[in-house]
Design a protein around this nucleic acid. Structure first.
Lengths: 282, 282
DNA sequence: TGTTCTTATTGCGTATTATGCAATCAATTT
DNA sequence: AAATTGATTGCATAATACGCAATAAGAACA
């Protein structure tokens, strides 16, 4: 199959697709802008960010809304991503073999360990839950499908902190460090500075597990491990959580099962390429 | 915020968005088609399904590829969803909150149907009311925020019974079955045994609505439908209740509006994950 | 409550481009 | 090797996307 193929954009400006449709290219750059906001945005914010007149953006948004990719909030008039975008994403994730294979065995992991289990992938808003097995013991919690986690004080967040390439992390990490520093917050194993972050992430990568011990969400204990690709970068975080502090013990069977699960679903980097990318970036 | 707002498409054909861009509408229907395949698809398959000439579809795909929403496989030449589709989608699900989004439109549902409306989520105490709209007619009822419902003889409870994973239901369901059996209670459509529960829940899932007809709370009629996530599990039950038995008729506009409401606020699983998890658990 | 300012939405003439159709290219089948 | 099928591209022109201004709606202020 040697056919001429459309080139995926390799810069952030978007530009026009050879052999494509100009109006569609422009519209898709608007959709990308909408995605890049942390939440609902005004027409003028979107237009400013996209570098387009508001009336043009408005017409694109009308079509996105009609297609279900965007919604406009009744009260605020702000625009947000819609249900179709979520369904598109779920469909796309379901074509990611790392997620699919880990999903297939998540229920068993939860059953064997007696904990609730989740899979999270990275999004613009940070680590996001895409699969969840509650198990019999966890009747209620605020954690659900679509939940996101902080980087510094969640097990899942720390795993992403340890294995995600730095450029993707930079802004969110900076924000969390600044917020913690100005609030005077620190943790027993982590101060809000980069050197301390480095030490924690080295520990996570060495032990292949991160944890939080109930201090952050009262009563809830969590451990997380990275499913990594051939470049040593994280594809999915697998996390166990529950209310028993036993989960944190180094000899805990659940902890071993989790590390084994993540390892089995990872692809080891080719040895001759040297260190995993995740390590090199630090 | 009362401005004229674009309407999300309410049928599967897509059509054109008033105030939108026609080429974009057409392109987005192609993206939807691409999504609906359970894996990589040929240009001609996509064009056939979209009802468009291949050359037109090819141009749209060129733009989608350029934007990262689609990729073309090197070897087979088939088209699939790209990384940017996953990123868009995960951003959408990280911003989605089932309760908040349903709440935003609950008042309109109550107004359009002329019924009182409520949203309930699962809690330690079973189905629990988290949002309540009284609607235009005065309904005397003790239902308020925080009210809980039984599983067997309430519409809301039956919806949870039909869509909640079995481990979470087990203890509460067992208790209600034993209590009914020892009190010698049964219902016209439900005996207090697991086989009968199974039949009722299959019916609820097939019809996508559960109801009680005034026999349980004198004078009160209720129908309920499930807002479900991409694992096929219930996130929120949306319930209409009032005093008019018309609510129970299969052709009742309120019933249709409720089912549509729940469907619009659900995120459907992708096709190739097979059966929804909620169903498999039975 | 009325006025002013800001933001969102829509109308319309015309400049731009999306489209249909055919040709060409590439891959697969016979 | 020839025929068939499927993907990609060129081009004339029909269609519509767009810029700009006007209008509508909402928020802020006095």
């Amino acid at each position: 199959m040697k056919r001429t193929r459309a080139k995926e954009t390799d810069d952030e400006s978007g530009g026009t697709a050879p052999g494509g449709i100009q109006a569609l290219d422009a519209a898709l750059s608007v959709l990308r802008v909408l995605r890049s906001f942390d939440g609902p945005a005004t027409l003028s914010d979107i237009a400013r960010e996209a570098g387009m007149p508001p009336s043009k953006v408005h017409r694109y948004l009308a079509s996105f809304i009609h297609a279900g990719l965007a919604v406009q909030k009744e009260r605020s008039g702000r625009y947000d991503l819609g249900r179709e975008a979520a369904e598109l994403g779920v469909a796309a994730i379901s074509r990611n073999n790392f997620v699919v294979r880990a999903s297939d065995e998540l229920e068993e992991l939860a059953t064997v360990t007696g904990q609730a289990a989740l899979l999270a992938v990275w999004s613009h808003n940070g680590p996001t839950v895409v699969r969840l097995e509650r198990g019999p013991h966890l009747t209620t919690t605020s954690i659900g499908l679509g939940s996101t986690f902080p980087l510094l004080d969640s097990a899942t967040g720390r795993v992403f902190l340890s294995y995600l390439p730095s450029p993707q992390l930079a802004v969110r990490l900076q924000n969390e460090l600044e917020r913690a520093a100005s609030a005077g917050v620190s943790w027993p194993d982590l101060n809000p500075d980069l050197a301390s972050v480095e030490a924690v992430t080295m520990k996570v990568r060495r032990e292949r597990v991160a944890y939080v011990d109930g201090r952050y969400i009262p009563g809830l204990v969590a451990i997380s491990s990275a499913i990594t690709n051939w470049q040593g970068e994280i594809e999915v975080a697998a996390t166990l959580f529950g209310t028993h502090k036993d989960l944190l013990q180094p000899e805990s069977p659940a902890r071993s099962a989790l590390i084994d699960f993540a390892s089995r679903h990872s692809i080891a980097p080719p040895a001759q390429l040297g260190k995993p990318r995740g390590a090199q970036v630090r």
